[in-house]
Design a binder for these strands. Structure first.
Length: 939
RNA sequence: GUGGGGAUAGCGAAGUGGUCAAACGCGACCGACUCAAGAUCGGUUCCUUUCGGUUCAAGGGUUCGAAUCCCUUUCCCCACACCA
């Protein structure tokens, strides 16, 4: 508990909520709303970043409850995968870094050995999460909480069921896939295990097979197989180490000539190379090779630019389109035929020649060559058109021809596929990585166009917070290729049909939200007399898909038909439209969230597809990135302890609206907010139920403001715009209250001020959950704020005089203050307010009338000038302003008089001086006053 | 490279054609309270000072009127995978 704010009995309210079972929801006649937060991976304490996304859920859940929805909100935990196992192993190995990390987060030294066991990590941190969420006031149905992996049999069975279904429906395929592979560690290396080359991925290229007189194959690696029609010669590095290898390509034995370094790569990509002999590049220079496509004979020439460590060491030369090739030939002074295949606008017949000459490239060592190559490739790929040299594709675009030609070449055995890395990747073990093909992998078939189509359809129907993220999902769906969904290391659920494999962690987390709807049955089986060991696929198929005969399923699962029926109904109730609001960090769009959509479309009928996803940016702490090294990393529990629960919740809610930009947790705000909370409660206690009976214009204005606030706040919460909701319900409303206080001199109308206090408490209740409860108790309300329902509006429109009075009073005060400051007055001794001359009122009347009647600017101008010749100057300046926006200053002289008179008491109080009201004629001098903006004389 | 998002006063951040010199919050300054500090409360915070002037990355355009619409330029951020 926070010293600054002893009046917030957070634990008391947590107990009250729990005792009343406030957040334990069961189906009823209300409309449901399903909120969820992605289950966190339990290898550490929750930190501020988690709290931020989580708060959006909790606020949404609490808001929807106030609005009368039946809200489902629970929280599971995730342990699938390798990190926990790896961390436990590190502890076992007495790894200093890992142990230091645990000590740093406050684990006592004596407990460290416990963390040698992965299960301890899981139980320890899932417990910590639960505690912290409770401390934060999370409105969660804990009956439905669960953890993943086979340590939780019912969930394990649920995931198995899911995979059996996917398999049955053909969404799982077997195949191989390319990975970045470390030859030393003999395993794939992700970005985190790289010393160099982060973000580099395997790229598919084509090996075009040139042959020599002995029938040996020279596989030339290229990204542009279509240019094979324009090959003038081949390049070999004369100093390079080459080998003759026997390989197996497309099930046929062949003899290949490749660089020595290439052999390992070939092996990892299943070409089964057998080294026969080694040779120097020089020895190959006399050869003439046959172009497999054109059957032309081309010479082998030396080139030092041929990279021996990447690719095959054999390069085909296309001087018309490759600046390197063009320059190298020029350097050698060889006259060879140059065949142009691609027309590009802005270039001559031989584009490579053009660009080389334009950039003034001297020789093949010129660094500008790289740039020239890049520019030309890009240009040709995007805008190039095939010439008559390739008859079949004449006039077609390069990208189109390329696709078709690759397939054709492969079919005819002219070429084969190969993977390469476009930039060097160095592993932590200091080895240069290659591309390996991993075989016999199980894949989720995300490349399946039918499946993609369904996913797109799902995205089209959903609501996204913020809306702009919708495109990211469409993009991701198109971009996703098959996903390897099984691992041989770590923990999780085993593939039901091949138990050697574990389901990968992203792949087991796709439709588990549906599990929440029925989790309480399976996670508390004794309570429902359920025997988990009897539960099998038929149970889930019945509950989630409604397939199967209830009597049969009941028998198989050992669950009574009645219970089975209610479980099925509970799922149908909560999962109509899937989940309504899922909030997470934006980094999950590319994987988890899109996976979730894919799987829903694969397994469920449309009525259970998800309805809403919200994502947010990262959280900054005082506008700085949180990081452990900077020492500004704070956990959930630290924040709550330091700033108090509701102050933290407020700072979180105020950290950002729905946007992808970074949010900011402002500790000054959080710290300072406790005082504000105390003041708010103090005020409520002092003022609630007190005040005068008389209902004045200013009261009706404030009633109107309250209504406006309720509407605005409603809209913001509904859009998950927590920052704006706080802005409106706390800051803006507080400022309006200040004005109301000023205008009334603290003599409030009883009804109005009481309504204000309760309304503000309720509007803030989704965020300031504990404060709202305190207030409700303090004010003797006979229900909990959490259950009170959304505040009701009075529903009266702002009447004309009230609105005018508001306009005039605000304007007067600001002008008086300005003058007071300008004249450097300590205190005002006399204040004279002068109404505008009669003529001005008449003029405004005329303007108003004309604006309503006529639409033409010129016409109005002429009319007015005619009628008020002495006001020509004023009209010229004033009219354009009011022409389109209407006349805001309009008021009748006697109305203004009445309003000014009614404001006298307020102004006298405000400035403690005598105030005189005068008409223009009484005052005498010409004044700047216009209607609704009387002149002021301050002394 | 591909795709997405930005640039607003000391800072953060609203604002998408007209009550916009621009909400609100922080910070700063002044004042009240206090022995004092903190907290709290009131006020000020582009320049001028009831007028008016110059602003919303830079330049150009559309319009009676632009922070807001269009074009160009510059700069910044995020994602790009086999993993939580």
């Amino acid at each position: 508990m926070n010293d600054e704010h002893p009046s917030l009995r957070t634990e008391h309210w947590h107990r009250v909520w729990e005792e009343k079972g406030l957040f334990l929801n069961n189906p009823d006649e209300r409309t449901k709303f399903f909120v969820n937060f992605p289950f966190p991976y339990v290898n550490g304490y929750p930190h501020l970043g988690h709290l931020f996304s989580f708060m959006r859920c909790d606020v949404m859940a609490r808001y929807k409850r106030l609005k009368g929805f039946n809200v489902l909100f629970s929280q599971g935990f995730h342990a699938t995968g390798q990190p926990i196992v790896a961390a436990a192993q590190l502890v076992k190995d007495r790894d200093e870094k890992q142990i230091a990390l645990l000590l740093q987060i406050g684990i006592p030294e004596s407990d460290i050995p416990l963390f040698e066991n992965p299960e301890h990590w899981i139980s320890f941190f899932s417990k910590a999460w639960k505690e912290d969420l409770k401390k934060a006031g999370a409105s969660i149905d804990w009956r439905r909480s669960f953890i993943t992996t086979d340590i939780n049999p019912p969930f394990d069975k649920f995931v198995r069921w899911q995979y059996n279904k996917l398999q049955e429906k053909g969404y799982i395929v077997k195949g191989s896939h390319p990975v970045v592979w470390c030859p030393k560690a003999k395993q794939p290396i992700g970005d985190h295990d790289r010393k160099e080359g982060e973000g580099v991925t395997p790229e598919e290229v084509t090996l075009v097979k040139f042959t020599d007189s002995k029938g040996r194959v020279y596989p030339a690696m290229t990204f542009r197989p279509e240019t094979v029609f324009g090959v003038s010669n081949m390049w070999i590095n004369p100093e390079g180490e080459y080998v003759e290898v026997e390989v197996l390509d497309q099930k046929r034995k062949q003899i290949w000539i490749v660089s020595k370094d290439c052999v390992y790569s070939l092996e990892m990509q299943h070409f089964s190379p057998k080294e026969l002999s080694s040779l120097k590049g020089k020895e190959l220079l006399d050869e003439e090779l046959i172009n497999p496509v054109t059957h032309d004979k081309v010479p082998v020439l030396p080139a030092s630019f041929v990279d021996m460590s990447n690719g095959t060491g054999v390069v085909m030369s296309v001087p018309a389109h490759a600046p390197y090739d063009y320059v190298a030939l020029r350097d050698l002074k060889k006259e060879l035929p140059i065949i142009a295949l691609i027309k590009v606008s802005g270039y001559g017949k031989i584009p490579a020649k053009d660009i080389v000459e334009r950039m003034g490239i001297k020789d093949q060592l010129d660094p500008k060559l790289k740039e020239a190559t890049k520019e030309l490739y890009k240009k040709e790929h995007h805008t190039g058109i095939i010439t008559e040299q390739i008859k079949e594709f004449e006039g077609k675009s390069v990208s189109e021809a390329k696709e078709a030609l690759i397939t054709q070449f492969k079919e005819k055995g002219f070429a084969t596929s190969y993977y390469t890395l476009t930039q060097p990747v160095i592993s932590r073990q200091n080895a240069r990585a290659v591309v390996a093909l991993v075989d016999n992998q199980y894949f989720l078939n995300y490349s399946n166009p039918e499946w993609k189509k369904l996913a797109h359809e799902c995205v089209d129907k959903m609501r996204f917070y913020p809306e702009q993220t919708r495109q990211n999902y469409h993009y991701t769906i198109d971009w996703l290729k098959d996903w390897a969904c099984a691992r041989d290391k770590g923990i999780g659920t085993r593939l039901p049909w091949d138990e050697a494999w574990l389901i990968e962690s992203l792949s087991d987390s796709t439709i588990y939200m549906a599990y929440y709807t029925i989790a309480h049955y399976l996670q508390n089986p004794d309570h429902y007399n359920i025997k988990i060991e009897k539960i099998g696929d038929s149970f889930f198929t019945y509950v989630f898909l409604g397939e199967g005969k209830p009597s049969v399923v009941a028998k198989e699962s050992g669950i009574s038909e009645d219970l089975l029926q209610s479980i099925r109904e509970e799922f149908l109730y909560w999962y109509e439209g899937g989940y309504d609001f899922r909030s997470s960090g934006k980094d999950l769009i590319q994987n988890h969230l899109t996976f979730s959509l894919f799987h829903h479309t694969a397994l469920f009928p449309k009525e259970h597809w998800p309805s809403g996803i919200s994502v947010n940016g990262y959280i900054l702490l005082n506008n700085e990135k949180m990081s452990k090294s900077k020492g500004n990393f704070i956990t959930f529990r630290e924040a709550i302890e330091q700033y108090g629960v509701d102050a933290s919740r407020f700072a979180m809610a105020f950290a950002s609206d729905v946007t992808l930009d970074d949010a900011n947790f402002d500790t000054t705000l959080a710290l300072g907010f406790n005082g504000k909370l105390a003041a708010m409660m103090e005020f409520a206690k002092d003022q609630y139920g007190k005040g005068r009976e008389e209902y004045k214009r200013i009261d009706s204005w404030f009633d109107y403001v309250l209504d406006q606030t309720i509407d605005a706040c409603d809209k913001h919460y509904n859009n998950s715009e927590t920052r704006s909701a706080m802005q409106v319900a706390y800051f803006d409303l507080s400022n309006h209250l200040k004005w109301y206080t000023k205008r009334t001199g603290g003599s409030y109308n009883k009804e109005v001020i009481s309504r204000c206090i309760l309304t503000q408490a309720l509007l803030l209740a989704p965020v300031l959950a504990h404060t709202a409860e305190e207030l409700f108790e303090l004010l003797g309300q006979n229900c909990l704020a959490s259950q009170a329902g959304w505040p009701t509006k009075k529903g009266e429109a702002l009447d004309w005089m009230t609105e005018r009075e508001q306009f005039i009073s605000v304007d007067l005060v600001s002008r008086i203050n300005k003058v007071k400051e300008m004249k450097n007055l300590e205190k005002i001794s006399s204040l004279t307010i002068v109404q505008a001359p009669k003529l001005k009122f008449e003029l405004f009347d005329a303007i108003k009338f004309l604006l309503e009647e006529k639409k033409d600017f010129k016409e109005i101008l002429m009319h007015l000038n005619e009628k008020f010749p002495e006001e020509k100057k004023f009209i010229a300046k004033f009219l354009p302003k009011v022409f389109k926006e209407g006349i805001t200053n309009y008021i009748k002289e006697e109305e203004e008089r009445e309003i000014l008179e009614s404001l006298l008491a307020f102004l006298e109080r405000e400035y403690s001086c005598k105030i005189v009201l005068k008409t223009a004629s009484e005052f005498g001098e010409a004044s700047t006053a216009i209607p609704a903006q009387p002149a002021i004389v301050v002394e």
